[in-house]
Computed example of a mutant assay.
Amino acid sequence: MMEANVNRTLIGKSLIIKGEVTGLEAMHIEGRVEGSIALPGQTITVGRNGHTAAMLIANEIVVLGQVFGSCEASDHLDIRSEGSMSGDAIVARISIADGAFVKGNIDVRRS
């Protein structure tokens, strides 16, 4: 049985963060983040209400909301059907669901 990740930060709908965010735990964004988020080895989830105007760096990035800026996922970038991404991506793997919006360059790199 897989254990739930209890070390996860939630950025709520009414929160706006401007600047640089770094850390060693997963993050779920329902608010707005502007700047950069670097969570190596972790997961960044941009929820349905989430908006980022930021550079995102993580092991896995899941997009259900709106991402404006570059994404660097050492493992997987997953853009769901309701998600949108405008910016360049450097990834090891990528999934883009039917209905998702993507504008930018995608560079798939193998380890």
Rank of each mutant, 00 (worst) to 15 (best):
E30K: 11
D78I: 13
F68K: 10
S95R: 03
L10C: 09
S74G: 05
D88E: 04
Q66W: 05
V63T: 00
E3W: 04
G99M: 01
I106P: 00
G19W: 08
G12H: 10
M2E: 10
L77C: 06
L56D: 05
L15K: 05
L64C: 14
G41M: 09
I96R: 00
A92F: 09
K18C: 04
E25R: 13
E60K: 15
S95W: 06
S70K: 13
S95K: 09
I90S: 02
H76L: 12
T43N: 04
H51R: 02
A89R: 12
T22G: 09
T45A: 10
L77G: 03
S111L: 15
R110K: 11
G104H: 03
C71Y: 01
V21F: 15
S36C: 13
V91G: 02
S86F: 01
R32N: 14
A100L: 06
P40D: 03
D75S: 06
K103I: 01
K103G: 04
V108K: 12
G12V: 14
G50K: 02
P40M: 01
C71P: 02
K13R: 09
I79C: 08
A38H: 12
G65W: 11
N7K: 07
V62Q: 12
A38M: 07
T45Q: 10
D75G: 00
D78W: 11
N105E: 01
R48Y: 08
F101R: 11
Q66R: 12
E25N: 14
E3V: 14
I57M: 09
I16V: 15
S86A: 04
G99P: 00
E25Q: 15
I17F: 11
D107R: 05
A58C: 02
T43S: 09
E72H: 10
I16M: 15
S84H: 03
V46A: 02
H51P: 00
D88K: 08
G83P: 14
A26T: 14
G87A: 05
V91N: 02
G35W: 07
K18G: 07
A73F: 08
S84V: 04
A26L: 05
I79P: 08
G50T: 03
G99C: 01
A54K: 02
I106G: 00
A58P: 00
A58L: 02
E82S: 11
G35I: 13
S84E: 11
G99F: 03
L77Q: 09
I94G: 09
G69W: 10
E30G: 04
S36F: 07
N59A: 12
H76P: 03
G47K: 10
M1H: 04
I11K: 03
I57S: 12
E72K: 10
I90W: 00
V46D: 01
P40S: 02
E30Y: 14
T22M: 15
H28A: 15
T22S: 12
E3S: 07
S84Y: 09
